[in-house]
Amino acid sequence: MASAELELQGAMVARLKADAPLTSLISGRVYDQPPADLNGVVPAATYPYVTLGEAQTIRDDATCVRGGEIYLTLHAWSRAVGFPEVKRIADAVADSLHDAPLALATNRLNSIEYRQTRVFRDPDGITSHAVIEFVAFTEKP
């Protein structure tokens, strides 16, 4: 049986890549890790795109049920001038995943909820960056 976190990651990526409004903004560019330059250092992906970020699972068992809370972070990246593009992408990600009926192979997703977005300019002074946070509640059969 795979971990709920890993199964959820796969379901989220599939949903985001199939989401028409998001695809119109990022052309399906959703990465676990974006392609890097020849030195393996600088992302070489075409902007804009979305990446999977940090995740944390907290076990939350109840009577006769093994469950967990999974805190998930996604990142949106843009090189367009200002914040409008990255904010549109972040909104599309939130709309796609909030309360989404994601099917997991061996675990059960009770719900996934959008929590918050932070938007800022990266230190390079060029890249706009959005951090989009969710929490999912899962159970093991």
Rank of each mutant, 00 (worst) to 15 (best):
Met1Pro: 11
Val93Cys: 02
Asp122Thr: 08
Gly82Ser: 06
Ser27Asn: 13
Val42Gly: 02
Ala2Arg: 13
Ala80Glu: 12
Pro123Val: 11
Tyr71Gln: 14
Thr51Phe: 00
Ala76Lys: 00
Phe134Val: 08
Gln56Asn: 14
His75Cys: 06
Tyr49Gln: 03
His98Tyr: 05
Glu85Pro: 04
Asp91Pro: 03
Ala94Ser: 13
Asp19Val: 00
Gln9Met: 07
Ser24Gln: 09
Leu52Met: 13
Ser128Ile: 03
Thr117Asp: 09
Leu72Arg: 14
Val30Phe: 03
Arg79His: 09
Leu52Ala: 04
Leu52Pro: 00
Asp32His: 05
Asp37Cys: 09
Pro35Gln: 09
Val93Gly: 03
Ala90Gln: 01
Leu16Met: 12
Phe83Ala: 12
Arg59Phe: 10
Arg88Gln: 13
Trp77Ile: 07
Tyr47Gln: 07
Asp61Cys: 07
Asn110Leu: 14
Glu69Val: 14
Phe137Val: 14
Cys64Ile: 11
Pro141Trp: 03
Pro84Asn: 07
Ala2Met: 11
Arg66Trp: 06
Val135Glu: 06
Glu54Cys: 08
Leu72Tyr: 09
Phe137Ala: 12
Asp122Ser: 12
Ala18Gly: 09
Val81Asn: 12
Leu72Ile: 14
Gly125Glu: 04
Asp122Pro: 00
Asp60Cys: 12
Asp99Tyr: 06
Leu72Gly: 04
Asp91Glu: 12
Tyr31Lys: 02
Leu109Ser: 08
Arg79Phe: 04
Leu16Glu: 03
Ile26Lys: 00
Leu74His: 10
Arg59Asn: 12
Arg29Ser: 02
Leu22Ile: 10
Ile112Pro: 06
Ser24Phe: 01
Leu52Gly: 06
Pro101Ala: 08
Leu102Phe: 02
Ala20Tyr: 00
Leu72Asp: 01
Arg59Tyr: 07
Ser111Glu: 13
Asp19Ala: 02
Val93Lys: 00
Ala105Arg: 10
Val81Ile: 13
Gln116His: 10
Ala14His: 04
Glu7Lys: 04
Ala105Asn: 10
Ala55Glu: 11
Val81Glu: 10
Asp32Arg: 08
Gly67Asn: 07
Phe83Val: 12
Gln116Thr: 15
Ala92Glu: 04
Ser96Asn: 07
Gly67Trp: 02
Gly40Thr: 05
Glu54His: 11
Leu38Gly: 15
Ala103Val: 11
Phe83Thr: 15
Gly28Met: 05
Ala103Arg: 09
Val131Gly: 01
Glu5Gly: 10
Val86Gly: 06
Thr51Met: 00
Asp19Tyr: 11
Gly28Gln: 06
Val81Met: 12
Asp91Val: 13
Thr23Ala: 15
Pro123Glu: 09
Lys87Thr: 15
Ala130Thr: 09
Pro34Asp: 01
His75Val: 14
Leu102Tyr: 04
His129Ile: 06
Asp95Gly: 13
Asp99Asn: 14
Ser3His: 08
Ala36Arg: 13
